[in-house]
Design a protein around this nucleic acid. Structure first.
Length: 480
RNA sequence: CGGGGCGUAGCGCAGCCUGGUAGCGCACCUGCCUUGGGCGCAGGGGGUCGUGAGUUCGAAUCUCGCCGCCCCGACCA
């Protein structure tokens, strides 16, 4: 047997992740462009399904898609004090264009609050213009020092929702509503359980009043921030002078929100479900839900096998791998690495018996079913696999979540955890939201991932670092 | 920016120390054979050895400069 091209996850999780992405044909490093990647057809197809799932939900809630320029005048970023401080270090700036040095440089958008704020100011005069509910599918650039495919790349694809409201209450509702949409897509479509919560002051979006996130646990126990939703307050409204006249006839600044998920979700998908054989895709996100491998020995078998293969595949929406010159074994490995949920085998034996062989990607279980039952059995298997993947991930999350009642305990649990070695945990502890606590956690490279919206533990307690009273336990972990 | 490693066929690498006809595995092409978990056999194509200079009769190999990439750290909604 040939040696597996995939490094075992237990040996080196980071190498395993790279191998799964490459062997699954999702993406490859761009090499010639530092920190960037090429998203290949198999990876882009997954992204398109995710886009469709999200986009449908956004539109059902009244949002409309728009597109703003890639280039933003540099001065715009500077209008909101926290925003510029947060983003300056990672900006790519265009200083020369058309062979001339520009009067004012353009930054390549790292996010679009500023340029959208400018146009909101032009479009909004009255409370009757509100709410404005917009979404943009776009690419953004952030000059990160350390990149990993999908998880953190210099350029990435995302959607950014931007809304403006007449009251803070409405804006907060919108912020939490969109966080729920993200959680639903993560759990129901990606089969990736998440914890909804509020970000600490130190971890919030630069320029927001409050940020909320969904946090998922990867197979190595590290946290992945899978989506964020921000209550921007009136910060950008004031910075860009987005004013409206309210029902009482007074001028007021709009209350804004912004929210986003990115191609990072694909990284989360890989690190939630895949194994040492390669990619495992939940059926709802699989570009090919089933692939049929025809098997024949002699020329006289080839015709009938292929005929039956195409007939059955058409009936159930499967793809037939009828490539010449590749053995069935090679084809099985090919599709296994690419995460196809169900691979079917059809050969002379099956033609004689009227059966077909189905193999499930996640469990590896093979079963023989009558050809007349393929369609219904396939639907059952896909449904079961979707649920099982979620439950397995949920069990892993539970099994690796622990309580801690002293900072030493938190430190002992997390200090040796790395992305490569794994062993990560979500440590639930009473910790206050302030700079001193952040600094103490940073000593062993952990962070408060979020403060859960729903307290599933024992309510309030004293902060294990400062002693002050806090109302619930927070999630502490190492993260990507 | 600090520390470490590496640039040789599409990919992965050997050769370098000790200078003398550019090699191996995979992939690719052709033919035959095979096909129920990575078939086999035979033949074949593909390289300015990252780049520039120097030493030498002769440089992938020695010397110096430059460029790029990877890993660790710092940085990071």
């Amino acid at each position: 047997m040939a040696e597996s091209p995939i490094t075992p996850g237990a040996k080196d999780f980071a190498a395993w992740y790279q191998d799964v992405v490459l062997q699954g044909d999702l993406a490859e490093p761009a090499e010639i462009v530092k920190g960037c990647m090429v998203i290949k057809p198999n990876g882009y197809a997954v992204w398109e399904i995710l886009q469709r799932e999200l986009d449908t939900r956004f539109k059902a809630l009244g949002h409309q898609n728009v597109y703003f320029p890639l280039l933003i005048p540099e001065s715009f970023l500077k209008k909101e004090a926290e925003h510029v401080e947060g983003f300056s270090p990672e900006l790519a700036v265009v200083t020369i264009a058309g062979g001339k040095k520009l009067e004012e440089p353009y930054v390549i958008r790292p996010t679009s609050e500023t340029i959208i704020g400018h146009f909101f100011a032009k479009w909004i005069q009255s409370w009757r213009d509100l709410p404005v509910l917009m979404n943009q599918w776009a690419n953004v650039v952030r000059w990160e020092l350390r990149t990993r495919m999908f998880l953190r790349t210099t350029e990435f694809l995302w959607q950014e929702g931007h809304t403006a409201h007449a009251t803070h209450e409405e804006a907060v509702e919108e912020t939490l509503r969109m966080l729920d949409v993200y959680a639903e897509v993560a759990e129901d479509v990606m089969a990736m359980p998440v914890i909804r919560g509020r970000k600490t002051h130190g971890e919030k979006f630069a320029g927001a009043l409050h940020s909320y996130s969904i946090e998922a646990m990867m197979r190595n126990g590290l946290a992945l921030q899978a989506g964020t939703s921000h209550d921007l307050g009136q910060n950008f409204g004031k910075a860009f002078d987005v004013k409206f006249q309210n029902k009482e006839g007074q001028m007021d600044y709009v209350w804004q929100t912004s929210w986003g998920v990115s191609t990072r979700l694909i990284g989360g998908l890989v690190m939630s479900h895949s194994d040492d054989k390669g990619l495992v895709l939940p059926p709802k996100l699989a570009p090919n839900k089933a692939v049929l491998v025809p098997i024949y020995r002699k020329d006289e078998e080839k015709g009938p096998v292929l005929e039956a293969a195409h007939r059955i595949a058409k009936e159930i929406g499967a793809k037939v791998d009828d490539r010449e010159g590749q053995s069935p074994g090679a084809k099985f490995f090919h599709w296994e690495r690419r995460g196809v949920p169900v691979v079917l085998e059809l050969g002379p034996r099956d033609l004689a018996s009227g059966n077909i062989v189905m193999k499930r990607r996640d469990t590896g279980v093979k079963e023989i079913v009558p050809q007349s039952n393929v369609a219904s059995r396939l639907a059952e298997i896909l449904d079961a696999m979707q649920k099982d993947l979620f439950n397995a991930a949920k069990d892993r999350l539970k099994a690796n979540t622990v309580l801690a009642n002293s900072i030493e305990e938190v430190e002992a649990t997390l200090s040796d955890v790395t992305a490569e070695k794994g062993g990560g945990k979500f440590v639930m502890a009473h910790i206050a939201d302030n700079a001193a606590c952040d600094a103490r956690l940073k000593e062993f490279k952990a962070t408060i991932r979020n403060i859960p919206l729903r307290d599933e533990y024992d309510g309030g307690g004293k902060c294990i670092i400062t002693g002050e009273e806090v109302d619930r336990r927070v999630v502490v972990a190492k993260s990507y």
